[in-house]
């Protein structure tokens, strides 16, 4: 036998885990929230989501084409970004803004920094922040659940307050707060994919079971928000806040399970992840209680994204056997 065999370095086998499989899992995990979004906000939620996903995929593909790089659409990460961005905008957002948001997420935040694995901020959240800064009104036009929203001209729909705004009382008028059940099921106003805690939990449990994410970040994040809002967010002094309401309402559920667990933009060390979760929680509480803005989830994650490299550096695992070094010889 003199035919040449393939010679390569060990290991010669690899786990089944791939980027594509991971992204597919995230997509599967996002489907319950998508269904909830459509049930609560009607068909336009689906239109916004599909527009966003398609735009993201097309921008990713175009970028690769223009830069003459192999296409990375197959890793499915653009679909995840598209879904997450769509889930973070109101159902009434004009479609052209959705497309611009997708462009910002994929081209500016992700590809300018080198593509998958290299962006330092969560593309979907950065794009949401960009949209909010550019078109504040359109990004805060909330409708009550089951409001018929026209496809094109959405400017004159009847608006309502989101549960968090109602709680903070920033909308001026006294509003009836939704029940816990409505909050849990998602039968409230808000962004397309963030309202149903139930749907997000189903997806989150799936991700945990598939070992795509660890419980560390969602747990520390939600616990910090609960604790912080219980202490500080009450209307009748310290320790009167409604912690359950605060974590069920708004974007923290979606953020905790799907955005604060993003691989690329959050720490990879176990201790770092705990710091990250607590950090997000603290910033969210700061914004909600003293920031004059009822949300706070996405900014908290974005801010923590920025310090992620630093967190990773200071929480690097200790060298094996270095801490408890035994005496060279006992004799």
């Amino acid at each position: 036998m003199d035919n040449l065999l393939v010679v390569s370095h060990s290991p010669h086998i690899s786990g089944k885990n791939t980027v594509r499989r991971t992204m597919l899992d995230v997509i599967i995990a996002l489907i319950p929230a998508f269904i909830a979004g459509v049930l609560v906000f009607g068909y336009r939620a689906a239109v916004v989501t599909v527009t966003c996903v398609l735009s993201c995929v097309i921008f990713e593909w175009l970028w690769n084409k223009i830069m003459k790089k192999p296409t990375t659409v197959g890793d499915l990460s653009a679909i995840v970004t598209g879904m997450l961005l769509a889930f973070n905008v109101p159902v009434t957002l004009p479609l052209w803004m959705v497309v611009i948001g997708a462009f910002f997420a994929i081209v500016i935040v992700k590809q300018f920094f080198g593509g998958i694995g290299h962006n330092f901020m969560n593309p979907a959240l950065a794009a949401r922040a960009f949209l909010l800064a550019s078109w504040a009104l359109a990004m805060t036009t909330w409708v009550a659940p089951h409001t018929a929203v026209p496809l094109w001209n959405t400017a004159d729909v009847v608006t309502s307050a989101t549960p968090l705004a109602a709680y903070a009382g920033t909308e001026g008028t006294v509003q009836q707060l939704p029940s816990y059940l409505d909050l849990f099921l998602g039968n409230v106003g808000g962004c397309i994919g963030e309202t149903s805690a139930l749907a997000i939990l189903i997806g989150g449990i799936y991700l945990l079971a598939r070992k795509v994410i660890k419980l560390r970040v969602p747990l520390t994040y939600l616990a910090t928000v609960a604790l912080g809002t219980w202490i500080f967010a009450g209307h009748d002094g310290l320790f009167t806040g409604d912690a359950l309401y605060q974590i069920l309402a708004g974007g923290v559920m979606l953020g905790a399970f799907f955005m604060a667990t993003d691989y690329t933009t959050t720490p990879y060390t176990p201790v770092g992840q705990i710091i990250f979760g607590i950090g997000c929680g603290v910033i969210t509480v700061l914004i909600r209680v003293w920031g004059g803005y009822p949300e706070g989830c996405s900014y908290s994650i974005l801010l923590m994204n920025i310090v992620t490299p630093l967190i990773d550096r200071v929480t690097a695992p200790k060298r094996y056997g270095a801490s408890k070094r035994r005496k060279e010889a006992k004799a």
């Binding site: 036998m1 065999l5 393939v6 010679v7 370095h9 060990s10 290991p11 010669h12 086998i13």
Partner: peptide, 11 residues
Amino acid sequence: PMMGMALPNLD
């Protein structure tokens, strides 16, 4: 398969 060495041939 984890640490073994790939052989150049079977001789």
